[in-house]
Design a protein around this nucleic acid. Structure first.
Length: 717
RNA sequence: GGGCGGUUAGCUCAGUGGUAGAGCAUUUCUUUGACGUAGAAAGGGUCAGAGGUUCGAAUCCUCUACCGCCCACCA
């Protein structure tokens, strides 16, 4: 009798992974069939993987393994993201901590070298973590958003958009992060609710209108007061202009009427600060008002802010203005108010809107494509989903996507960071030059800014395939089949991939977006450094095995739904892995004299056809992206039908010579196909069992149920 | 201010018109030769609340409450 250990030992997982990797089947070049591609959302190259990444990788690995077993040329392309802001910030923090310096102390070149060193180490960690999870990714194609191929893609994309007039440079009031010393896009601003104070005051004794503000210091830069056109209280004043002295500054204020003013908030009159509020800037443009910059990049008051506040931090300036108002008896009252303060997503710094010269992607301008369609980027993004060419799952996110597009403004793509793709634009005198390569003749200075990291990740579905070169990979695998990121980056990333792909390739980037939710701790809180509630997936895997973790993360979790990480659940699936091992052990040990050609008796035929029915149902769920239920069904069938009933009943049959051969065949058929179907979810234990009796690899065995082919043709716009 | 999701057994969650489900936990029993990381069995829910549609509602409609999320130029 074959010696098989009585418990499954998950310590063998790394050996199994090596066998897979050596086989070459992670690389679709060694597979045949219809291409099927998933691009891995690239984790930030600075970090290590957390439990959420393990979840995301599990979902993708399930799909990839399923399609590989269906006989498709499955490509799962892994990679990492240079994550400009996050990395820049992190490395600068380390630099300050270890050497007491900031990036300017060591210079651009030395700083970049530090970053690259840090990123290289981190990338290695991430790769190994993904291997531990069982990710059957094609490492030979691994990409990095900041490597040479991707760099060329970025410059090419910029150049083409620049030439099409979709990228422009201009002074706009943008979101400035004084802490990170860079501009950030609208989507990188997060609002935090805080209790603030609303100050009601008049600019001067002679000024007829009381206004309300939460930021008195910004009033030093006011150039107008706006009221609603239908507001009877103020109608008489519209058009009047006032010169006055306000807290050490000279103001020239015009009363204007603007639809956007809410007559019911505060006094119904707004002090307009064009240089330090995006909303006010828009009002100012409509009424031809000047903008006076009174706050600088370090959140300190400028010369223009007047004699009292100049050089002070905004907070101090506020106190100065408030006490001046008090002295002058201009402050009428204050009110406590819930307000949203905007902060930078990455650095946490408080956003200070400032007028700045920046690069933008124009999302409204209509351009003619090669296929002669005249559409704006907004329309391209909208139509790709509205036409049904791209399906977003769960469907409710499509509505959210459309709503985001409706409100979309031009995308600020320039960052004042050092780590990132340099903008491929050069200046000489008042000449400007944009190209993929730097100009040949001397005297040109390259633009100092770098690009928003999302600009490069937006190219991910095709930059990974070698674009702008016309590679065979690009031809075979683009548009990709599935993209499986978390719903929190629908706007940051998914929408922008659609933008880039539809414009640059005139093709959708992927057919299906499968959005997953956030894995939270057992109390339902997000994992965060500040709470120190993080869980290292590698520790969990070492304790219970990757299969157990994968199942625990996938079962019971619907698309787009958040879930709670529970170690008890992992333990339960560790037990299941052991169940698979032992049920297999029993079948193997009972099959030493089995005959593959043995005839099934009627009772066993019926059992087998019930299994086939079950297998068809599981397949249906796989096709519908319903992995949670497919996994649960497999678990339930294997344990409570196959192990508890079919195996138990077989014990008596095996002892009966007339029934023995049929029973043996039944057990082997169901076991083998069960292993195949469990494999995408629990690749290690199933392969370990398979290797006991077979020479080939389970990972490339054929899925037992055939499915109708979908998407036979390449989808394009 | 808009929009979305959730509220089902102690816990985590399935279940979209036809007699309430799973896993874990709990209780009892089983030292059976695949597995005690096991097996057999049991207890446990007026499906958030109210109203409506229906022969019939956890499931459809309306409203309410609470929890959570997203969006928005309340200065």
């Amino acid at each position: 009798m074959k010696e098989i250990t009585t418990t499954y030992d998950q310590k063998k997982e790394p050996d199994i992974y090596k066998i897979w990797e050596m086989s070459g089947y992670f690389n679709p070049d060694n597979l045949s069939g219809k291409p099927f591609a998933i691009m891995m959302p690239p984790p930030n190259a600075t970090g290590t993987l957390h439990i959420g990444h393990a979840f995301e990788s599990s979902i993708q690995d399930i799909m990839i393994r399923y399609h590989r077993m269906k006989g498709e040329k499955a490509l799962w392309l892994p990679g990492t993201d240079h994550a400009a802001i996050a990395t820049n910030t992190k490395v600068e923090k380390i630099l300050t901590k270890e050497e007491g310096k900031n990036r300017h102390d060591i210079g651009r070149e030395a700083f970049i070298a530090k970053v690259e060193e840090f990123v290289a180490a981190s990338r290695g960690t991430i790769q190994n973590q993904l291997r531990k999870v069982g990710a059957s990714a094609d490492w030979s194609r691994e990409a990095f958003t900041f490597d040479e191929t991707r760099n060329l893609a970025v410059r090419t994309a910029f150049k083409r958009m620049f030439d099409a007039g979709l990228i422009y440079r201009g002074i706009r009031v943008i979101n400035w992060d004084p802490k990170g010393q860079t501009a950030v896009s609208d989507d990188e601003v997060v609002y935090k609710q805080e209790l603030g104070q609303l100050f009601y005051f008049k600019y001067s004794k002679d000024f007829p209108i009381t206004i309300a503000t939460t930021r008195p210091e910004t009033k030093l830069g006011d150039t107008a007061v706006a009221v609603h056109p239908k507001d009877k209280r103020y109608k008489a004043y519209v058009g009047q202009e006032f010169d006055l002295e306000f807290a050490g500054a000279k103001l020239h204020l015009k009363i204007v009427a603007d639809e956007t003013v809410d007559p019911d908030f505060g006094t119904g009159a707004v002090g307009v600060t064009p240089a330090h509020s995006i909303a006010d800037y828009e009002i100012a443009q409509r009424h031809n008002l000047p903008a006076i910059q009174i706050i600088n990049e370090y959140a300190k008051m400028t010369q223009q802010a007047g004699s009292l506040a100049v050089g002070k931090k905004t907070k101090e300036a506020r106190e100065i203005v408030v006490s001046w108002l008090n002295e002058q008896s201009l402050l009428e009252k204050t009110e406590k108010i819930d307000m949203n303060i905007s902060t930078a997503e990455r650095s946490g710094g408080i956003i200070e809107p400032l007028p700045k010269l920046q690069w933008f992607v124009d999302v409204k301008k209509k351009v003619k494509s090669q296929k002669s369609k005249v559409k704006s980027l907004k329309e391209l993004m909208h139509d790709a989903v509205a036409s049904g060419k791209i399906k977003i799952l769960p469907e409710r996110f499509e509505k959210i996507y459309f709503h985001w597009i409706d409100n979309l403004r031009d995308w600020n793509i320039s960052r004042q960071l050092w780590y990132g793709h340099r903008i491929p634009v050069w200046y000489k005198g008042d000449q400007i030059y944009c190209d993929v390569e730097s100009p040949k003749d001397s005297g040109w200075e390259q633009d100092e800014d770098t690009l928003d990291t999302w600009f490069s990740s937006a190219l991910w579905t095709f930059s990974t395939l070698g674009w702008p070169k016309e590679t065979s990979d690009l031809k075979a695998f683009h548009p990709t089949d599935v993209m499986a990121p978390g719903y929190e980056i629908l706007f940051f990333w998914v929408a922008r991939m659609i933008l880039m792909s539809t414009f640059l390739l005139e093709e959708i980037p992927f057919k299906t977006v499968y959005l997953h939710g956030i894995v939270r701790d057992i109390q339902g809180r997000k994992f965060s450094k500040s709470l120190d509630n993080g869980i290292d997936p590698v520790e969990v895997i070492d304790k219970y095995g990757a299969d157990a973790l994968r199942m625990a993360l996938v079962v019971g979790v619907g698309p787009g739904n958040d879930s709670k990480y529970d170690e008890m659940k992992v333990k339960g699936y560790r037990n299941f892995a052991n169940k698979i091992w032992n049920a297999s052990r029993f079948v193997i040990q009972s099959s030493y004299d089995a005959d593959e050609q043995a005839k099934l008796n009627e009772a066993d035929k019926k059992t087998l056809s019930e299994f086939e029915e079950f297998a068809r149902n599981v397949t249906k769920k796989m096709e519908k992206f319903d992995f949670a239920h497919a996994a649960e069904d497999l678990y339930h069938y294997f344990w409570h039908t196959f192990a508890d009933k079919i195996i138990e009943e077989s014990k008596a049959k095996l002892a009966e010579p007339k029934l023995r051969t049929s029973a043996q065949r039944l057990l082997n058929e169901i076991l083998n196909d069960s292993l195949v179907m469990l494999h995408p979810f629990m690749p290690f234990v199933t392969e370990a069992v398979w290797q006991l009796e077979h020479k080939d690899l389970l990972m490339v065995r054929k899925w037992p149920i055939k499915t109708a082919r979908k998407n036979p043709t390449k989808k394009s716009l």
